[in-house]
């Protein structure tokens, strides 16, 4: 993480925390959900590497609640274990060797912020049905054909964004 950006990150992190807390608080107070979601359904002990997107999205938690850098940085980022601890009492941290499956190739300069904030593109547009996953993806989190330059260029043509090579490769 680049130091000069830490300030904004923390502010937004705080905002995201408030959002998560708000969502959870809402869940508690909403009587309808209380029935379907008893307190025991939030497991006390969880493993970071066994994260289920499906379980969390059914609770109505938005992508940006955990991947909050999406709106401020070039990268989306992975939530920290501390973020998980807001709800779960004990979180088994991933081993040091654990790596996220999705990595931007070194020759592509892609900005999440430019696409989500300036472009107003939803996460599903590129990442597909993430809410159906029961485990962290073993492969890059793109459905078949969603990643790759052809996909990028096709969309850029439709919305009239720049297709100059220099925009993404430099």
């Amino acid at each position: 993480m680049r130091p000069e950006k830490l300030g904004t990150s923390w502010v937004l992190g705080g905002a995201a925390l408030a959002l998560v807390l708000g969502v959870l608080g809402g869940l508690w107070t909403s009587s309808g959900l209380e029935k379907s979601l008893p307190a025991s359904s939030v497991p006390a002990t969880v493993a970071y590497t066994a994260f289920s997107h499906r379980k969390h999205t059914t609770l109505g938690i938005a992508c940006g609640a955990c991947h909050f850098q999406t709106y401020v940085e070039a990268w989306a980022g992975l939530p920290s274990v501390e973020l998980c601890r807001l709800c779960h009492r004990s979180v088994e941290a991933p081993p040091a060797s654990w790596e996220p499956a999705t990595r931007l190739p070194g020759h592509v300069f892609f900005s999440h912020r430019r696409h989500t904030v300036s472009g107003g593109i939803s996460c599903e547009r590129c990442h597909g049905e993430v809410q159906a996953w029961d485990a962290p993806p073993a492969e890059p989190s793109f459905p078949r054909g969603m990643a790759g330059m052809n996909r990028c260029v096709a969309c850029h043509r439709i919305v009239g964004a720049s297709t100059d090579c220099l925009s993404c490769h430099r």
């Binding site: 020759h107 100059d164 090579c165 220099l166 490769h169 430099r170």
Partner: peptide, 10 residues
Amino acid sequence: NPQGVVAQIY
């Protein structure tokens, strides 16, 4: 490129 910059795609 359209703005007259000569680019190299490594």
